Amino acid sequence: MSSTPTKTALVTGPTAGIGHSFAHQLARRGYDLVLVARDEERLAAVAAELTTSYGVQVEVLPADLADRDQLGLVEARLAERDRPVDLLVNNAGFGLKGRFLDNDADTETQMLEVLVTAVLRLTHAALSPMAERGHGGVINVSSVAAFLPRGTYAAAKAWVNSFSEWAANEYRTQGVTVMALCPGFTKTEFHERMDVGRDSAPGFMWLDPDFLVAKALKDFDKGRIYSIPGAQYKTVIALTKLVPNKALQAYQSMGRR
Results as ranks from 00 to 15, higher is better:
residue 91 N to Q: 01
residue 252 Q to S: 05
residue 163 F to Y: 14
residue 42 R to S: 14
residue 233 Y to F: 08
residue 130 M to I: 00
residue 74 V to K: 03
residue 21 S to V: 11
residue 54 Y to H: 15
residue 81 R to Q: 01
residue 134 G to H: 10
residue 76 A to Y: 00
residue 118 A to F: 01
residue 180 A to E: 09
residue 3 S to P: 09
residue 208 D to S: 14
residue 115 L to K: 03
residue 211 F to S: 07
residue 244 P to G: 03
residue 86 D to R: 06
residue 113 E to L: 03
residue 53 S to T: 13
residue 152 T to K: 12
residue 75 E to M: 15
residue 142 S to M: 11
residue 59 E to T: 13
residue 236 V to A: 15
residue 75 E to K: 15
residue 246 K to F: 10
residue 124 H to Q: 14
residue 29 R to W: 11
residue 96 L to K: 15
residue 74 V to E: 01
residue 29 R to H: 11
residue 1 M to T: 07
residue 152 T to C: 13
residue 42 R to N: 12
residue 13 G to E: 03
residue 179 M to E: 00
residue 34 V to E: 12
residue 201 A to G: 08
residue 5 P to E: 00
residue 22 F to V: 03
residue 247 A to W: 13
residue 219 D to V: 01
residue 147 F to P: 00
residue 244 P to C: 04
residue 10 L to P: 01
residue 143 S to E: 05
residue 133 R to A: 15
residue 229 P to N: 07
residue 233 Y to D: 03
residue 68 R to I: 04
residue 12 T to Y: 06
residue 62 P to T: 01
residue 237 I to F: 02
residue 57 Q to Y: 12
residue 196 V to F: 07
residue 134 G to I: 12
residue 226 Y to C: 12
residue 136 G to W: 02
residue 155 A to D: 09
residue 213 V to T: 12
residue 215 K to D: 06
residue 81 R to Y: 02
residue 132 E to L: 15
residue 118 A to L: 00
residue 88 L to W: 02
residue 138 V to H: 03
residue 179 M to G: 01
residue 119 V to R: 01
residue 44 A to G: 15
residue 103 N to P: 12
residue 185 F to D: 05
residue 234 K to F: 02
residue 98 G to N: 14
residue 101 L to Y: 15
residue 79 A to E: 02
residue 235 T to N: 06
residue 27 A to K: 10
residue 55 G to A: 12
residue 209 P to Y: 07
residue 167 A to I: 06
residue 44 A to R: 14
residue 206 W to A: 11
residue 37 A to T: 08
residue 174 Q to L: 07
residue 105 A to T: 11
residue 231 A to N: 08
residue 168 A to L: 10
residue 213 V to M: 14
residue 237 I to N: 00
residue 128 S to E: 06
residue 17 G to Y: 02
residue 98 G to R: 14
residue 3 S to F: 13
residue 144 V to W: 03
residue 188 T to Y: 08
residue 106 D to W: 06
residue 163 F to K: 14
residue 216 A to N: 12
residue 164 S to G: 08
residue 46 V to Y: 09
residue 148 L to D: 04
residue 91 N to H: 02
residue 249 Q to Y: 09
residue 168 A to C: 11
residue 247 A to L: 15
